[in-house]
Write a protein that binds this DNA or RNA. Structure first.
Lengths: 339, 339
DNA sequence: CGCGCAAATGTAAACGTTTTCACGCCGGTT
DNA sequence: AACCGGCGTGAAAACGTTTACATTTGCGCG
């Protein structure tokens, strides 16, 4: 900037004013400065600018991972909203435990205006201590945490409820469930939702039909194997806590000669793109993940401009929608007769 | 930091030394400073630190978009490598044209140590002018550009060659091709690769069998419809420039009652996850996109530590691998007899 | 013709670190 | 007893901007 100032025979202050249009500058001076700046290919130093302005024009995004389509969509939604506000994204992933999150948060201080944190495996309490003071934060997919401006979550409860209702309406009585890893907040919420919805539908949850899983296709496959291997008739419906496991289960059942949905109905959760392409196409619950990201970013921006909103624990839920495809049908006649 | 210094009864210089372990400090002083720092929940300001140190511990990533699995994987690969070096990622997407890229690049100056740029729709020349001087840059999936430290690309040529060879070996003579959008560098490279490989295999390219496409499933569907609608027998093989289009074509052919691979063989490119799940499973070319990202980041780090490497146009190609699945077989007997 | 006022510009002090340099202190050597 | 070297520390100058304040300039008006 000094060079530009010198060559344009003005002070650095004037250069700054021209570049930011922050104060009136005479037409010819302005033109001269711009000309020189272009000639020198000058562009201002972001760090210095951030330091002085106390605003970084960037949002920090802290994620446990980047694997799979969920994060891709999430990031896209966040980016969309950030882009609109002229902000960049400082992304830091692979932070699973509270310590990791804490480190990432500290590294962001002074380089971002606000924080978007997703830490499904960190308890609300440890998260609260990891969050910085004075940096507006929105929590994703976890219970609202002290110190956070807001929390945005997927409607796991509603999603599981609508599935169970639908199954019950079709006439299913025994609905098996494949859980996700219990330390993940979503997995826990979906299991809770399943139990509640079953009770609400007047159905009993047989504990032998609540299977362990880990959100992977492989895990779903194993759970289905286990179901097949157990003695006694199969349940008439199988509800997996996510699509990856549902797909795995589909495979295992198919291999075992079980007809879907003739012998058993299978339902997933998430509506990953593959769900449309497996045979039979998977009935599932769709959540607009990009909207989740976009809403979180929007809330963060609101907290940035309106400091009153800080830490008031505002909460938002992104709705879930039942997507009915071929993997889902009424229970077989034999099962109905059995009762 | 001043507060910490005051409470610990030392100078800010000492606080800095303790926090960075950048100079010997007496054990008890150090302990005292750390204690106070923790108590005050102090964490250093990134902008100030970057400004003074002239190193940001961040990499800039400029992408045209964030849609789909490609970017997710790319970002994951980059992140993996960056993480290892303790760097964060400053991501800025939705920059399609040269001007957009230029703006993004300028916004990154002073906040990142190096740049990873993917701009498939920007010509090498305009890209060269958009790139900053003095900021090491690695170009992704485009021809090496003046001023870039290195370029990493997917082996489009090798990928198309291996497909065409395989098809020729199976006995196919007429291989149709669905192009991608011509302004994209990959799409162009794949079309070129197809033509070259066909010639190398002693096959002629019928221009009526080179179909327009746009990399979308919808586009692939339309291209296949066009093929079906045209008079004369179908070609025995159809090679789509990406999987999305191949899947679309699969659908259109299936709808028209064409048997795959009995009547026609279909091959894609990319090996997106869906490719495994469509029926019949899609033969395709796999490129490890995460490796592409990781290699690019690794090269950038090398350029950062070894300034000699700057702008020497080092080039790296990520290999492509043929994945044979059910959508691919020998030409039908009728076609062979036809000749 | 000088006065005052607004517009345009310059000066310099921040912003929060890191780092150079200098200084005081201590133990060991001449 | 004077000297030297190293260790621990503090003072202050950067880093590249923005901006409050001061200054100059030009202009209309009494």
């Amino acid at each position: 900037m000094k060079d530009v100032a010198r060559l344009a025979k003005v002070s650095v202050a004037t250069v700054s004013r021209v570049l930011n249009a922050s104060a009136p500058v005479r037409e010819d001076t302005s033109a001269r400065v711009l000309e020189i700046a272009r000639e020198l290919r000058f562009s201002p130093n972001g760090a210095a600018r951030t330091l002085k302005r106390r605003q970084a024009s960037a949002l920090g995004v802290i994620l446990p991972d980047l694997y799979g389509e969920f994060f891709s969509e999430l990031l896209r939604g966040i980016d969309l909203e950030a882009q609109r506000a002229g902000h960049a994204l400082l992304v830091s992933s692979s932070h699973h435990d509270a310590r990791g999150v804490s480190v990432a948060v500290r590294a962001m201080r002074g380089r971002v205006d606000g924080l978007l944190v997703m830490a499904p495996e960190v308890s609300a309490a440890s998260l609260a201590t990891a969050l910085p003071d004075g940096l507006p934060t929105v929590i994703l997919n976890t219970a609202p945490t002290a110190g956070a401006a807001a929390a945005v979550t997927v409607d796991n409860t509603g999603g599981t409820r609508v599935v169970v209702h639908h199954l019950a309406a079709l006439g299913h009585r025994e609905v098996a469930f494949i859980c996700g890893p219990s330390r993940k907040a979503d997995a826990a919420a979906r299991l809770r939702g399943y139990r509640t919805a079953m009770r609400a539908a007047g159905l009993t949850v047989h504990e032998s039909l609540v299977l362990r899983g880990d959100f992977t296709e492989q895990g779903g496959w194993q759970a289905a194997r286990q179901l097949i291997a157990s003695d006694g008739p199969l349940p008439t419906a199988l509800f997996a806590a996510n699509d990856a496991m549902a797909v795995g289960a589909l495979l295992a059942l198919h291999e075992a000669g079980v007809v879907i949905p003739g012998d058993i109905t299978v339902v997933g959760f998430d509506d990953i793109p593959i769900a449309r392409y497996v045979t039979p196409a998977l009935t599932t619950v769709r959540v607009a993940i990009d909207v989740l990201g976009a809403r979180a970013a929007a809330l963060l921006f609101r907290a940035l401009t309106d400091p009153l909103m800080q830490g008031n624990g505002h909460r938002e839920v992104i709705p879930a929608e039942l997507i009915i495809r071929q993997s889902c049908g009424p229970p077989p006649a034999s099962a109905t007769a059995r009762r």
